[in-house]
Write a protein that binds this DNA or RNA. Structure first.
Length: 198
DNA sequence: AATTTGCCCAACCGCAGACTC
DNA sequence: GGAGTCTGCGGTTGGGCAAAT
C-alpha cells in the first residue's frame, strides 16, 4: 500500500506551503489594500499567490496586520494572560482581544511554551489554601485596565475598586449553559468606562 | 567538530458555526 | 430549509536554532 505523501511532498505539487517569503508578503499586503482583509479566497487569487485563503488570512492576522506588537511579553501582559486563562480556559482569541497587538497564536504559543510549565511548577510547590476567587476577579479587571494603557498605580486602584464581585454569583453564571459564554464575552468586551477608576 | 536534545514559534489541519445562494 | 462555501478558532506539527553532550 502506497504511503500518503508527506507535507513537503504535497508542497511540491500543490499550493505553496511553509514559510512565507518577503515577496509573497508584499503581494498579499497589496491585495489586501485593494480588496480588504475579507474574502480570503479572492484575496489569495488576486494576489497571484499559490496559497489558499486560509493561509493568507493567518499570515495577515499573525504577521502583516498593522499594530502587531513584536517582542517579549511583559510581566504585566503575562499576569493578564494568566488571569484570563483562569477565567476562560483556552479561549485564545478572547484572551488576545484584551492584549492590544498580540495575536491568539502568539498567546497560545507563549502559554504552551512558558506559562503551562510555570503553572505546573507553582501547583507542585504551592499546595496552600485557595485564594479568594473574588479577589482574583478584581485583580483581573485591574490588570485588563492597566494593560490597556492606563498609567495609574494598580495598587491604588485596587483600593478604590468598590465593586463587590460576588464569587458565588460569578461561578453560578458559568454553570448555566450557552448564556455563560455570552456573559463572559460581554465581561471581556466591556468598555473601560465600566471600570470605576476609569 | 559532530551529533543529539530541547525549545520556540510560524504555519498547517480539522472542525464548527456563519454566511450565501 | 438545505446545500455549498467561507471564516474563525483551537490543537498540533515540524523546521530552525541554540545549548548540551
Amino acid at each position: 500500500m502506497p504511503m500518503a505523501p508527506t507535507r513537503s511532498q504535497y508542497s511540491k505539487r500543490e499550493a505553496n506551503r511553509g514559510a512565507w517569503t518577503s515577496e509573497e508578503d508584499q503581494k498579499l499586503a497589496q491585495a489586501i489594500e485593494i480588496h480588504g482583509p475579507r474574502r480570503w479566497k479572492l484575496v489569495a487569487a488576486k494576489a497571484g499567490l499559490n496559497r489558499c485563503g486560509k493561509s493568507c488570512r493567518l499570515r495577515w492576522l499573525n504577521y502583516l496586520r498593522p499594530n502587531i506588537k513584536r517582542g517579549n511579553i511583559s510581566d504585566q501582559e503575562e499576569d493578564l494572560i494568566l488571569r484570563l486563562h483562569k477565567l476562560l480556559g483556552n479561549r485564545w482569541s478572547l484572551i488576545a482581544g484584551r492584549l492590544p497587538g498580540r495575536t491568539d497564536n502568539e498567546i497560545k504559543n507563549y502559554w504552551n511554551s512558558h506559562l503551562s510549565k510555570k503553572i505546573k511548577q507553582k501547583e507542585n510547590q504551592n499546595k496552600s489554601p485557595k485564594q479568594d476567587q473574588s479577589q482574583d476577579l478584581r485583580n483581573s479587571a485591574i490588570a485588563m485596565h492597566s494593560v490597556a494603557g492606563n498609567t495609574e498605580e494598580t495598587s491604588k486602584r485596587d483600593e478604590e475598586m468598590k465593586i463587590d464581585f460576588s464569587r458565588d454569583e460569578f461561578l453560578e453564571s458559568f454553570n448555566e449553559g450557552p448564556l455563560n459564554l455570552e456573559w463572559m464575552s460581554r465581561f471581556l468586551e466591556m468598555d473601560e468606562s465600566w471600570f470605576p477608576f476609569a
